[in-house]
Design a protein around this nucleic acid. Structure first.
Length: 869
RNA sequence: GCGGGCGUGGUGAAAUGGUAGACACAAGGGACUUAAAAUCCCUCGCCGAUAGGCAUGCGGGUUCGAGCCCCGCCGCCCGCACCA
């Protein structure tokens, strides 16, 4: 055998250079072969890749290389999600320009990614902060503006007081900014919006067709869109001197409980609340207090349900002569429905709490099945389940569903305040996507505000609207707005002095179409629709679950908006979606309770317990829980150190082994060493077998049975690995490859004849091709050692001989009363009657039967035998 | 509160309703070596000397047969959360 160890530090750069020189992974749009588009979520250029990237891109690369070997024309590009606030923060801290910082980060990360040996077409690289990219985004924005997909409106927004910018609802997590973590405040601002809510129904129903998406993600999006079917209902105000308004408009999903209504509640933000507050000091104070403490979503959630009577009453819509009091209540959202609700305390917990507090009537109108109408009462718990309507005149006896229909008919035929009193309405939780950000480092919104002409889009010939280079970040807030001259322009329509829009776009806009731009990255238009439509949708998209709502929902919307403006011809951008788990690591703490990085620790074991000490001081270290790698807990492992030490293939292999890809994976030193050992083992095995194969066969006397047995294993593994990769079950593919390696190592020791030598040769050749998607550098080195003059990267996936997948002998386990008691080897396809005879004749079976005859004999041909005694 | 997911050896995990624990890590024993590293071989769910028994969070059920299907608990994780 070759005594030399495989040296990844030498071989990996060598193959990377060769792939690069031969342009192995450059994809042509004109290639006639079947297209396959695999994409991993592009990274934010923070400056360094982390293990999460390694895992993500290792998976994507396996898919890309596998499909390339299967003869597809594979598109596997990479780019940079390069706009965003960290660049501005860095500019402030380091007195540099956001662009300079970003581009130097890109260069550093690109080098790191290249050292991983990914099969990426780097000729298609894009950075969203480049005018070459964002000018097309601006062009599409103008198209969408003209198509009515974009709107500008004043609304209450989530204001991040640290980042000094606006956040979309989706970007507020637990009442805090998704990036800054600061409690979010509510402010009233004029903003640009994509009218995503117009697409709510389509975005919701199309989820059903995304069969290659995780059910979990579809469900999260479904909940986020939040469809609810209900009714809009007008309550006529009893005339008084308090207000001129004729009716209050209410949204409800439970019109069937209308007879149980006992009050109306308005949001403090409801226009009627404000007008009623004018001569009502108590109400004024209540609304003011609501606004004081109601800024942060968090405090809002914990607040007690409170309200103030407004002094006005409405007519009960179905009970003649009765009226209901109107309250302003802190739990009614202005954002949802109409900002007003009717309270039916018997069948809604919130309403019940409110009613008990203010001593309002509680009248049950839904009777649980089998309950006695005479004695059924509501205590502290509202009854919200199924039942039949009672206490409700013309609805009595109906089911909830039937009652809803009847109520709709009833109110649909009546008029209040000059309008139909009630009509069916569908409401969505999904709000329009506010994209205005008061930041410099983002795509400028290409419009001009003219006092004469209003808001005018920048003519396309004047695009791109480029960010000014000479900016200062001395003052907090928007550097673009502070720039002395940039915003002063003349109106493109009338020529008068006008002002540029200084808001830039949310960076989620940038990432909502990059996958389309990759299909024609140098085009003079945002896309070349015929080419985009050929590649899209992305066949396999891979990324983190944290983008389940934001990025993926926006991209789905944006693709529809691009279709409406003629830039693509499809609705859904991602056919297959896979969300990978996080990379975790043990945490370590010193006796003082400080986090200690794994690089500073040595481990020892006494066979029972693992202990840790500080490498330099020898101080004891406590081993803590396994957590997501994070700087704050110091449990990060730097990919550069792993790639520089063990090599990229080892890191890749380890990321794919053991843990199912959707689950979290724990990075361990021993796991990496195991991966590295396997790398050496393959290298040795290939050389050992080559040596055996080259020996002249003096004793050609093999009957071929051993060779056939080996070939069966080889072909079964090849078929299995292909299957596993297509299912993205990389850990199972890895296990099969280990099995093959074990089988080859065993077989090589017993070589008797030429047939087995040939089988071994086929075995290692296939082994190399199987590991190629996962450890491509090692595969090339082994391929070369075999004397091949081509590249493993260009080799076809091994052909499976179907005949070798079939066994002519099968081993049937024999169960007695469901417990395994023995086995029998029979020819495949042996009929049940024959098997029964054979089994009953067996000693072990006779012994177990103890002279009795079985009550029942279950025989599943080629699978199992079960005797019931 | 609502919705979803997951509970299998010391560990990561396998297992179209059909031999539970493949494969790997860790551990232990042995070979080789002056020694170490590397490598190779063996053991490795629990109880039991063996025969065998018990084992997939707990309790039931369906089935010839359940880790897998159904019902009820317990625990952990994730998402949403005053949505009328």
């Amino acid at each position: 055998m070759s005594g030399e160890r495989y040296n990844p530090r030498e071989s990996e750069p060598k193959w990377q250079k060769i792939w690069d020189e031969r342009q192995s992974f450059v994809t042509s749009n004109d290639d006639p072969r079947e297209p396959y588009y695999v994409l991993e979520m592009f990274p934010y250029p923070s400056g360094r890749i982390h293990m999460g990237h390694v895992r993500n891109y290792s998976m994507g690369d396996v898919v890309a290389r596998y499909h390339r070997a299967r003869g597809k024309n594979v598109l596997h590009p990479m780019g940079w999600d390069a706009f965003g606030l960290p660049a501005e923060n860095a500019a402030i801290e380091r007195k540099t320009h956001p662009g300079a910082w970003t581009y130097s980060n890109i260069a550093a990360m690109k080098k790191q990614l290249q050292s991983m040996g990914l099969s990426i077409d780097w000729t298609r690289e894009i950075a969203t902060c480049s005018p070459d990219y964002y000018r097309h985004q601006q062009a599409m924005f103008i198209d969408m503006l003209k198509a009515g997909l974009v709107t500008r409106k004043s609304s209450k927004v989530n204001w991040d007081p640290v980042d000094m910018t606006v956040l979309a609802n989706e970007q507020v997590i637990d009442g805090k900014g998704w990036r800054s973590g600061a409690p979010v405040e509510q402010r009233e601002l004029t903003q640009w919006f994509f009218r995503i809510s117009d697409f709510a129904e389509d975005l919701l129903s199309a989820l059903d067709e995304l069969k290659d998406w995780p059910e979990k993600v579809r469900l999260m999006q479904r909940n986020w869109i939040g469809k609810s079917e209900g009714m809009r209902l007008l309550f006529e105000i009893v005339p008084s001197d308090k207000t001129d308004a004729g009716a209050v408009d209410v949204f409800t999903t439970r019109p069937d409980t209308i007879f149980g209504a006992s009050f109306l509640a308005l949001s403090p933000d409801h226009p009627l609340s404000a007008s009623l507050a004018a001569d009502n000091p108590e109400l004024t104070e209540f609304i003011a207090e609501f606004h004081r403490q109601g800024t942060a979503t968090e405090t809002l959630e914990k607040a007690e349900k409170k309200g103030v009577f407004t002094g006005i009453r409405v007519k009960h819509p179905v009970i003649e002569g009765e009226t209901l009091p109107v309250y302003v209540a802190n739990f009614v959202l202005m954002d949802y429905g109409t900002g007003a609700v009717f309270g039916c305390p018997a069948h809604d917990q919130r309403d019940l709490d409110f009613a008990r507090k203010y001593h309002l009537p509680v009248k049950p109108v839904v009777l649980p099945i089998d309950a006695d109408p005479a004695s059924f009462t509501i205590g502290d718990e509202a009854y919200v389940d199924a039942g039949n309507i009672f206490n409700s005149e013309f609805l009595d006896g109906l089911s909830i569903e039937a009652a809803k229909k009847k109520v709709a008919e009833h109110f649909g035929a009546r008029m209040v305040d000059g309008q139909v009193q009630g009509r069916i309405e569908v409401n969505y939780r999904l709000r329009d996507w506010g994209i205005s950000r008061q930041r410099y480092w983002g795509c400028p919104i290409p419009v001009v505000h003219c006092e004469v002409c209003g808001t005018i889009p920048v003519p396309k010939k004047d695009l791109p609207v480029v960010l000014p280079e000479d900016v200062s970040f001395d003052k907090p807030g928007n550097a673009l707005d502070h720039h002395p001259s940039w915003k002063h322009v003349s109106c493109p329509q009338c020529g008068a002095a006008a002002r540029r829009e200084t808001d830039t776009m949310d960076t989620f806009v940038d990432s909502s179409w990059y996958f389309a731009r990759f299909t024609a990255p140098d085009a003079e238009t945002p896309t070349i629709p015929s080419i985009a439509d050929r590649w899209l949708p992305v066949d396999q998209y891979i990324g983190g679950i944290e983008h389940a709502i934001l990025h993926l929902l926006y991209s789905r919307y944006f693709t529809r908006a691009m279709k409406a403006t003629g830039h693509v011809g499809l609705d859904e951008p991602f056919k297959g979606l896979f969300t990978q788990g996080m990379v975790t690591h043990e945490t370590y703490k010193s006796e003082k309770g400080e986090w200690v990085p794994p690089t500073e620790i040595v481990f020892e074991t006494d066979g029972e317990q693992r202990r840790a000490r500080h490498a330099q001081t020898g101080a004891p270290i406590s081993i803590g829980s396994v957590e997501k790698m994070s700087k704050s807990k110091k449990n990060v492992v730097d990919p550069d150190e792993i790639v520089g030490g063990y090599g990229a293939d080892t890191a890749r292999w380890f990321m794919l082994s053991d843990s199912p890809p959707e689950r979290d994976v724990q990075w361990t030193e021993s796991g990496v060493e195991g991966a590295s050992r396997f790398q050496q083992r393959v290298w040795r095995l290939v050389h050992d077998i080559l040596e055996i194969a080259e020996q002249s066969s003096k004793t050609v006397s093999s009957n071929g049975a051993d060779a056939l047995a080996l070939r069966k294993i080889v072909h079964r593994v090849v078929a299995g690995v292909g299957h596993d990769i297509e299912a993205l079950s990389f850990n199972r593919a890895v296990a099969r490859i280990y099995e093959l390696t074990n089988a080859l190592a065993k077989a090589k020791d017993g070589v008797a004849g030429a047939a087995l030598r040939e089988a071994l040769r086929e075995g290692i050749e296939y082994l190399i091709l199987l590991i190629n998607p996962m450890m491509p550098h090692l595969a090339e080195s082994c391929w070369e050692a075999m004397g091949k003059t081509t590249l493993a990267a260009d080799a076809d996936w091994p052909q499976v001989d179907p005949a070798l997948l079939v066994d002519d002998e099968v081993i049937l386990p024999i169960q007695i009363n469901g417990k395994r008691r023995g086995e029998i080897s029979v020819a495949k396809g042996t009929p049940a009657s024959e098997v029964e005879q054979l089994v009953l004749a067996m000693d072990a079976v006779q012994k177990a039967l103890d002279g009795k005859s079985p009550k029942k004999v279950v025989i599943v041909p080629d699978r199992i035998v079960n005797l019931v005694v």
